[in-house]
Amino acid sequence: MALSSAARVPAGRRRLGATISPAVAYWFAVPSVILLLGTLLLPIMVMIAMSFTDYELGALEFSFLGLDNYTTLWRDAGFWRALLNTLYYVALVVPASVVIGLALAVMVNGLRHGRGFYQVAFFLPVTSTLIAMATVWKYLLHGTIGPVNHLLTTLGLPALEFFGEPSLVMPALAIIGVWSLAGFNMVLFSAGLTAIPQELYEAAAVDGIDTPIGRFFTVTLPMLGPTTMFVIITTSITAFKVFDTVAVLTRGGPQGASDVLLYVNYLEGFQYMRIGLASAITVVFLGIILLLSLIQAKVLERKVHY
């Protein structure tokens, strides 16, 4: 305000009226700006620059490679496997956790008693330390002594070696992912649900739609459209960043069946110290995240119109 009006006053005249000086605003913003530059923007630029080099930590010299790191990645089966594994994980976790979150939210919201209890129960996994709970899950899904397999054998089904069988390891990780995310999505949906005006349900009832299913499809679901899009993308971003459970439970195994992007990135950068190549992977990772965020921003923009 101060600046814009000062700009309008003809040159040579003193600024009229007394407002706070714009310097105050700068002083307020400076600490954050320093941190923003130092811990985020500069590192990102350095990281992008390094993705064009063959730098390895501890090396005395390095050379400029151009796009070599990227072509290496393009030809590397391991990188593709990690990318596809990550996408597979996203494809498993997102639909399940969104649908479960929505179903739980709608049902809990429809209750007359005990909403608080269910909210706490379903949200508890979100706040728990995932690493600790992952070890519990490893035990639950254990091939011989896990209760899940106890249940399967009781039902007359064959026992499954979740963390030993390459084709089962991603679904096993996805189960843990869904478990830890569904409650979060439920709370997001609940917020969306409470924003739906009660009159819409009354209007629908007057129009002859009075079954719960009918209400859900004519009012709830369309009104939750923007929230749903938002939840889908938020969940996608979270799922895309899967790292903890892999690092603790599988370490990419068996036979690379659970190599995911961030885990490979971690190994390249911090175990093998191949900074150049790891930077290239990070650039790819950042690109995908930004793309998802862009879609999210578009969705949020559209949501404003509701």
Partner: peptide
């Protein structure tokens, strides 16, 4: 939008 893994290497 930027997760911690992105500036991690230079940091």
């Amino acid at each position: 939008c930027v997760p911690v893994q992105v500036p991690a290497l230079p940091l």
